[in-house]
């Protein structure tokens, strides 16, 4: 027995269903009843119930691509702020993808405090200690560009259905984007005016994620700024 519609907005403590459903993220069971634990949109797929949250901090999970900022270093690696309650550890061997003789090599040449790094979450243990790796092509230290932070819960909207929003941002905005699951987004482009337009678009997505017709509005806004020309 379901008490809400698919994609309906629910709040914590709200009764979602009664019966033998599979309870996923954002929901919990008490006896036969299933309740929402966060503000979000109820997603009801077959026997699965999950609540897609509309707010909340980023909690790392293996396989996520994140954008981190180096905040500390130790003898064999670095600690990265990943816009989460938990910092990420990056061993020098997981950055360079080779064995490193720490006695012979000074690792400070590879990363410094404040550097921005694209990384992947390699492992998270039960105490929420996070291991990162950044050796794959396109990962590692970021050069140039602009870093924007949005609410991690809005990242799926930035990507859009089958990447449609991301394509609009890159094609119409004439920029290249790298989106971290942790809400950090890197933007590179030639025209500072279009970079700012894409930033505006990202803030608009964050602000209006819950208002219908978003992709069209973003498209229109970028086209308009582009047609005005100049730098």
């Amino acid at each position: 027995m379901l008490y809400v519609q698919n994609r309906e907005l629910v709040v914590p403590g709200q009764l979602i269903a009664e019966g033998s459903y599979n309870v996923r993220e954002g929901a919990f069971r008490e006896g036969k009843q299933v309740y929402a634990s966060v503000v979000g949109l109820a997603e009801l797929r077959g026997q699965d119930i999950r609540i897609i949250p509309l707010q909340g901090r980023y909690i790392p999970k293996p396989g996520d691509v994140v954008i981190g900022v180096v905040v500390d270093s130790y003898y064999s690696g670095w600690i990265l702020d990943i816009n989460s309650p938990y910092t990420g550890n990056l061993f020098v061997s997981d950055l360079l993808r080779r064995k490193v003789d720490l006695v012979r090599e000074d690792i400070s040449q590879y990363l410094s405090m404040g550097d921005v790094v694209v990384a992947m979450v390699k492992d998270v243990n039960e105490r929420m200690r996070v291991q990162l790796e950044a050796g794959e092509p396109g990962m590692g230290r970021v050069k140039g560009g602009k870093l924007v932070e949005i609410s991690p819960a809005k990242v799926p909207r930035v990507i859009g259905r089958k990447g449609s929003m991301l394509n609009t941002l890159q094609d119409v905005g004439e920029c290249k984007l790298r989106v971290g699951q942790n809400g950090r987004i890197m933007i590179w482009g030639k025209n500072p005016r279009m970079i700012n337009a894409v930033v505006e678009a990202l803030l608009m997505i964050e602000r209006e994620a819950h208002i219908s017709g978003l992709t069209d509005r973003v498209h229109l806004m970028l086209e308009k700024i582009k047609s005005e020309g100049g730098e």
Binding site: V69, V71, D81, S112, G114, D115, V116, V142, G144, G145, K146, L147, M186
Partner: peptide, 8 residues
Amino acid sequence: IVSSVRRD
């Protein structure tokens, strides 16, 4: 934290 990218 002000990242180097933002600073630049």
